[in-house]
Computed example of a mutant assay.
Amino acid sequence: MARIIVIGGTGLIGSKVVAKLNEHGHEAIPAAPSTGVDTITGEGVADALAGADVVVDVSNSPSFEAKAVLDFFTTSTNTLLAAEKHAGVKHHVALTIVGTNRPNNIDYFAAKAAQEKLIRESGVPYSLVHATQFFEFLGAIADTSMVDGAVHLPGSLVQPMAAEDVATAVTRTAAGAPLNADIEIAGPEQFGLDEFVRRGLAFRGDPREVVRDESATYYGALVGERELVPVDGAQIFATTLADWLPLNPPRH
């Protein structure tokens, strides 16, 4: 069984990946600043990766501001790739986003695309898992889309999925041979962004009105109708929004 280091292994996806890998007999170890591993400063990285077979990177930037998020992903990824080469790591798995390889003006996507390029060109065997939006971020999307007391979102299509399913896909990928390629994963249903958030808020009894507004932005950027949905051939997971909502009340 493999020794697998999970960067961002204490977070929403990472903690699930660690648990799933360990359940399947691997030695999965969470790595994050809270465990003494900082991929920005480099602190603890070499020690953490010593003897590792696989590195899974599900870390995320604390800021979505254009320069900050680009600096985070390029610095962190360069640190990891250099340490992986030194340690002889055989497989680098990174979680990224559906749509980064399409024309868009989303700063976060540009930063992830830069991260992906570094990985592809590194010489380290890799797999890139592109996921659609998580159900878990429904509330955050609403909160960041408030205009004059209502939630304003475009009808751009999304095909969201449960974090549990994302973690399953990342786990399977980490346990397998490097793909040296990209895969896309998604949930089973497409919604307009406005409809996705409207259904979630309504189920939770949140009284905020959701307004379909094609001039509204998504995390600061205008998005086209199909920029956020997967292409043919994506791996589709079964959990629907209706399945997920009763099991995931909002956090207060």
Results as ranks from 00 to 15, higher is better:
L70K: 15
L70T: 14
L70F: 13
D71V: 05
D71G: 08
D71S: 09
D71R: 07
F72V: 07
F72A: 02
F72G: 07
F72L: 12
F73S: 00
F73K: 08
F73I: 02
T75S: 12
T75A: 06
T75W: 02
T75P: 09
T75F: 04
T75R: 07
S76Y: 01
T77D: 03
T77V: 09
T79H: 03
T79V: 10
T79Q: 11
L80G: 05
L81S: 02
L81P: 04
L81C: 10
A82W: 01
A82D: 13
A83V: 03
A83F: 01
A83D: 05
E84K: 09
K85H: 12
K85T: 09
H86L: 12
A87P: 07
G88L: 03
V89H: 05
V89R: 01
K90D: 12
K90I: 08
H91A: 06
H91F: 03
H91G: 06
H92V: 10
V93K: 11
A94H: 06
A94Q: 09
A94V: 15
L95E: 04
L95F: 02
T96N: 07
T96E: 06
T96P: 03
I97Y: 09
I97R: 08
I97C: 13
I97A: 14
I97P: 01
I97M: 07
V98M: 00
V98E: 05
V98A: 04
G99Y: 07
G99L: 01
T100I: 08
T100S: 13
T100E: 03
N101M: 14
N101K: 13
N101Q: 15
R102A: 15
R102T: 13
R102Y: 15
P103D: 15
N104T: 12
N104G: 13
N105A: 14
N105R: 11
N105S: 14
N105Q: 14
I106H: 09
I106P: 03
I106R: 04
D107W: 04
D107M: 05
Y108E: 09
Y108G: 09
Y108S: 00
Y108C: 02
Y108Q: 11
F109D: 01
F109E: 01
A110C: 06
A111P: 00
A111D: 01
K112N: 00
K112C: 00
A113W: 12
A113G: 10
A114Q: 07
A114N: 00
Q115P: 00
K117V: 04
K117R: 15
K117C: 05
L118V: 08
L118H: 04
L118N: 02
L118T: 04
I119F: 10
R120G: 13
R120A: 15
E121I: 10
S122K: 00
S122L: 06
G123C: 10
G123W: 11
V124T: 10
V124W: 14
V124N: 00
P125F: 08
Y126P: 09
Y126A: 00
Y126M: 08
S127P: 12
S127A: 12
S127I: 11
S127V: 06
S127C: 12
S127K: 03
L128I: 15
L128G: 05
V129N: 07
H130S: 14
H130I: 04
A131C: 11
T132L: 05
Q133I: 08
F134W: 05
F134A: 14
F135V: 10
F135Q: 00
E136A: 14
